[in-house]
Design a protein around this nucleic acid. Structure first.
Lengths: 161, 161
DNA sequence: GTATATCCGACTATTTCAGTCAACTTTAGA
DNA sequence: TCTAAAGTTGACTGAAATAGTCGGATATAC
């Protein structure tokens, strides 16, 4: 079982997508800027999210990604799953053949832990998350920082180099 | 966050220790035979469990390890912790400085997940586990296999090589 | 003093993570 | 039609962790 940056980034990016859904497709560049995730890495993650049927892409200028379902129909467990981070705590992938074809001493324990985690993540949808006030305020902060960055670029003479 | 063989082995070994506690110190060789864990690897794990204050060692022939507390006073979370497998799901180790010193969009989500997992593992003691019938029957099976193995060795002419 | 045990440090093959880089295709708009 | 913005794909990489192995040292019951 593991939950690393990969799975966390995937959920963060999907949440960003859900939050900014009303203004058309969202480019990975925008997500990268707001969430501080490298563009190249986002490309990898979204390839998996697309294969997993969670997002749809729009190519060309003005393009980006959209959720392929309503945010109320996508739960966190699916997102983590799509990027191949298994929340399964057993060694045998629930088969019960962990030790010489039989259950190991702790098989049931890890099975129960897996069920706990899955129930928790499966019960939370993107729609529910974007209702939360701490997430709304974090998103607002990120949006204003992004706007400031754009303003700064526009108002500055381009004297790079 | 990760739960791998290391943490699972640690809990399995501690459970084996708890089950066979009444017959004096348990050698790593016995645990290795019953649980199918390499002796050298067990040595590594028990070094950490000892440093973590969970077991005490008895050196010399007839020696081995004992639980340093009653099995009802040791919970699964402690064991996993002792071998350095963090069940913390946040990136920032709960500090809330995940993105440029501020909370990332998903900070609270992972905080809640961490709390769920910790509550679950903290609530289960070794004493509770060894009461469970599926664990008792697995342990019985392992014991009888171990006895058969000893019998086989004793009754066979040593014609190795 | 020898066999049985823990102790300890160094070593290693493999895998994954987290990310970079380069090249390619699609497409909106000037 | 040209160009720039976007997604698409595959190869690559440094660092870290996993899951061990190996050799030897130390302690101790008999």
């Amino acid at each position: 079982m593991r939950l690393t940056t990969k799975g966390r980034y995937a959920v963060t990016a999907m949440l960003d997508l859900a939050i900014h859904a009303q203004s058309g497709p969202v480019s990975l560049n925008d997500i990268s800027g707001r969430q501080g995730i490298s563009l190249s890495y986002l490309e990898q993650l979204f390839a998996k999210l697309r294969r997993g049927g969670l997002v749809a892409s729009v190519r060309g200028p003005g393009g980006g990604y959209r959720l392929s379902r309503d945010s109320s129909e996508i739960n966190v467990a699916e997102v983590v799953d799509a990027v191949n981070e298994s929340m399964d705590a057993t060694r045998c992938h629930r088969r019960g053949d962990c030790q010489d074809g039989e259950e190991c001493l702790t098989h049931h324990l890890w099975l129960e832990l897996s069920d706990q985690i899955h129930a928790f993540l499966h019960g939370i949808t993107l729609a529910q998350l974007i209702q939360r006030k701490e997430i709304r305020s974090t998103a607002d902060r990120q949006d204003s920082i992004a706007r400031n960055r754009i303003d700064a670029v526009l108002s500055t003479d381009d004297v790079t180099g």
